[in-house]
């Protein structure tokens, strides 16, 4: 049996249906190759289209979302346009919506904290964040985010004060959501690039708060 190494989370021991297991890879990999090649032979799709789409997917990472958030923090006019129409504001920064979804940007304030989930499948703002993490696609997050969001947030180490509304957006159709986290205090002098480094994927899903010292490293 063909074996592949995967970036498993070492803390997670038991088998998990979302995560590829090398023992089972062969059969489905063969099926994928066979389906794709048959469709190419029948000229229904092109091999170049698949290659291009892989490049598209590889080019979409949370760094794009971080750039959008940092711009919104630094430029009030952009922020207003982003909140009015998430997709067209992202397109201003060159971020295309290849999957033809709309984007609603949800602004966290001192009164409201937003959280996004897709209870039915795995809808996610892929054009601007890339592909979702496995936990976002698994039952515990999907089942509980809509019924006990504060407990879910606490499991991510995020405690929202009682007086703040926790507002959950469940994606079901063609709209995708992106959370605009609150700008951390003490960042008044930061450049846009420094601001972007504070913005993680989890802050844009709403399971974490942006803070100094917890952002991405190496920027």
């Amino acid at each position: 049996m063909r074996r592949r190494q995967h970036g498993h989370d070492g803390t997670h021991e038991h088998a998990h249906p979302e995560i590829s297991e090398s023992e089972r890879l062969g059969y489905f990999e063969i099926m994928e190759t066979a389906v794709r090649e048959l469709l190419i032979e029948k000229r229904l799709i092109g091999a170049d289209e698949i290659r291009r789409q892989i490049e598209v997917l590889d080019s979409r990472t949370p760094a794009l979302g971080a750039k959008v958030v940092a711009r919104a923090w630094a430029d009030p006019d952009f922020r207003a346009r982003l909140l009015a129409n998430g997709r067209s504001a992202c397109e201003e920064l060159g971020i295309s919506f290849y999957d033809d979804t709309s984007l609603i940007v949800l602004e966290n304030t001192e009164k409201v904290h937003n959280l996004i989930v897709c209870t039915l499948c795995s809808c996610y703002p892929r054009p601007v964040l890339g592909l979702p993490p496995d936990w976002y696609k698994l039952k515990p997050y999907r089942a509980r985010a809509v019924s006990e969001p504060r407990s879910v947030l606490a499991e991510f180490g995020t405690v929202i004060p009682d007086e703040v509304e926790v507002r959950v957006s469940d994606s079901t159709a063609m709209v995708r959501y992106l959370v605009l986290p609150r700008r951390p205090e003490g960042t008044e002098d930061y450049s846009e690039q420094q601001l972007a480094a504070l913005v993680t994927r989890d802050t844009m899903i709403g399971v974490a708060l942006a803070a100094i010292g917890t952002g991405r490293t190496g920027l």
Binding site: I104, S147, R150, E165, V166, V168, S169, S171, A173, V175
Partner: peptide, 29 residues
């Protein structure tokens, strides 16, 4: 048309835990 519908958490879950200031948003055809 699809609509973004606002629903209070207490309308969905009669035993909703925590603050009553909780809401859900969902797109419905």
């Amino acid at each position: 048309h699809y609509y973004r519908i606002a629903i209070p958490m207490t309308e969905i879950w009669s035993d909703y835990q925590g603050s009553h200031r909780g809401g859900l948003r969902v797109e419905v055809c």
